[in-house]
């Protein structure tokens, strides 16, 4: 079998924009940064231009703790994107962060048996390469 035969298609990568770049830059530095409204200080995620509470277009970025509790999860057995073929089955958790936002990431260790709603987890930083770090979680 030739080496090229083993080559899987590249996984999808985020497209950077003015709105999301600080979030991805933060992850690369192993920090979880989210938007904070300049009008009413409400935190929001995923990044977007406008606060849905006070309609302010102003915002800055603030670092979150990365601790949270499991909201839900799935174990992906079928590689819908062929780039993930070698990783199946993998566990993806949706997490209620301590500060009130939600974040999704792959669970370290890929064992769903200990999961339950409310189970405590903490953020991990999965360095894909020099340009990209993805959020993940581990049980605490």
């Amino acid at each position: 079998m030739s080496a090229s035969h083993d080559q899987l298609p590249e996984k999808p990568r985020p497209e950077y924009s003015d709105e999301n770049q600080p979030y991805w830059d933060g992850l690369r530095e192993h920090k979880l940064l989210v938007q904070r409204c300049g009008g009413c200080n409400t935190l929001r995620h995923y990044p977007r231009p406008l606060c849905d509470g006070c309609y302010s277009l102003e915002y800055d970025w603030t670092e979150l703790s990365g601790s949270g509790k499991v909201h839900s999860w799935t174990v992906s057995h079928h590689p819908f994107h062929p780039g993930f073929k070698r990783e199946t089955p993998y566990v993806t958790v949706t997490v209620d962060l301590a500060e009130g936002l939600r974040l999704q990431g792959v669970l370290e260790g890929n064992d769903a048996s200990a999961l339950a709603i409310g189970r405590e987890v903490e953020l991990t930083f999965n360095d894909v390469d020099a340009e990209l770090t993805l959020p993940g979680f581990r049980l605490v």
């Binding site: 999808p12 999301n20 839900s72 799935t74 993930f84 999704q104 792959v106």
Partner: peptide, 24 residues
């Protein structure tokens, strides 16, 4: 938003999106 923030981590298709709803 799904494409930017969830597809890179491996959430790529409706079965995966809705599995989180069903599990909860």
């Amino acid at each position: 938003l799904v494409s930017e923030f969830e597809m890179p981590i491996g959430t790529n298709a409706p079965a995966q999106f809705y599995a989180h709803m069903a599990r909860r």
